[in-house]
């Protein structure tokens, strides 16, 4: 093999890798362009003030519903995931039980969301007789999001230097105080990133909500059970198949709002990570 051929091969491989990087840009840019350009006709103030009616109306019920059911889900998933992450990453990181839980959590993250939705349908909607409801939807989203919070919390905790814990303990602080005041505080950006990751996944979920939250054209109410609730992803899925242009525009508008929410969440998460990397 000549040197020239070896270098040519090196170039070819670099070219292929660059090509792969360019190919993946195509669907990303294509999707952004598609959604933005088609959503424009529907972007009026009434989008945010009116509820969906038949094949038209606004998205007020779906917007509030998304915030409501996702917010409630994260309210469950956040604290529980952080506490589980504290056990796995801090209380007994190398213990057998912690290793087993770590593995189970990873596998749980791979369970299809529709399966978790069906589980919620069987247990909450039918079993407990809640019907399609906000609480059932929020619990399904919490089950989907919690593994991400656990793993991010654990990873963030494992990066805290051991010396900080030892210093805190040497000053006489208990393990609880050390975790609460020192390690968790130090790991906070990573922990919050995990919560934001779960948040962005929950915002984009559809299938599990079809089976647990149902759908409603009305504004969400405070009733947690026996009352279905609307959300943005449902509008995208159903209104795009309507034969009327205004309904389809509504679907694209819902898609655009979802993308905006997820971009915002992602940018905030990224800011946090880079800030923690620079040592604040």
């Amino acid at each position: 093999m000549t040197v020239a051929w070896r270098h040519l091969k090196d170039r070819i491989m670099l070219g292929l890798a660059v090509l792969m990087g360019l190919i993946i840009l195509v669907p990303v840019i294509g999707m952004l362009w598609l959604v933005v350009s088609h959503a424009l006709p529907a972007l009026t103030p009434s989008l945010f003030t009116e509820v969906t009616v038949g094949t038209g109306g606004g998205l007020a019920n779906a917007i509030v519903g998304t915030f409501y059911v996702v917010g409630l889900g994260i309210l469950f998933a956040g604290p529980l995931g952080i506490m589980a992450g504290v056990y796995v990453g801090e209380v007994d990181p190398s213990g057998r039980f912690a290793q087993f839980i770590r593995f189970t959590t990873d596998v749980m993250a791979g369970v299809p969301s529709i399966v978790i939705g069906y589980f919620g349908y069987v247990t909450l909607v039918l079993g407990l007789g809640w019907g399609f409801s906000t609480l059932a939807g929020a619990i399904a989203l919490a089950l989907i999001g919690v593994p991400y919070v656990v793993r991010s919390t654990e990873t963030a905790l494992s990066k805290v230097p051991r010396g900080m814990r030892e210093a805190s303990m040497a000053l006489g602080a208990s393990q609880t105080t050390t975790i609460w005041r020192v390690t968790l505080r130090e790991a906070l950006p990573g922990v919050v990133t995990g919560v934001l990751l779960a948040l962005s996944i929950a915002i984009g979920e559809t299938a599990p909500l079809l089976y647990t939250a149902g759908w409603s054209n009305y504004m969400p109410n405070l009733q947690l059970t026996h009352s279905p609730i609307g959300y943005l992803t449902y509008v995208v899925w159903t209104y795009i198949n309507e034969p009327f242009a205004p309904a389809q525009a509504l679907a694209y508008a819902a898609g655009l709002l979802l993308l905006l929410l997820i971009v915002i969440v992602n940018i905030v998460a990224r800011r946090l990570v880079s800030r923690s990397r620079l040592g604040r």
Binding site: P27, S200, I203, G204, V236
Partner: peptide
């Protein structure tokens, strides 16, 4: 992070 319904769209 793009929701699967948007990819479906």
């Amino acid at each position: 992070g793009i929701p699967s319904v948007v990819i479906g769209l």
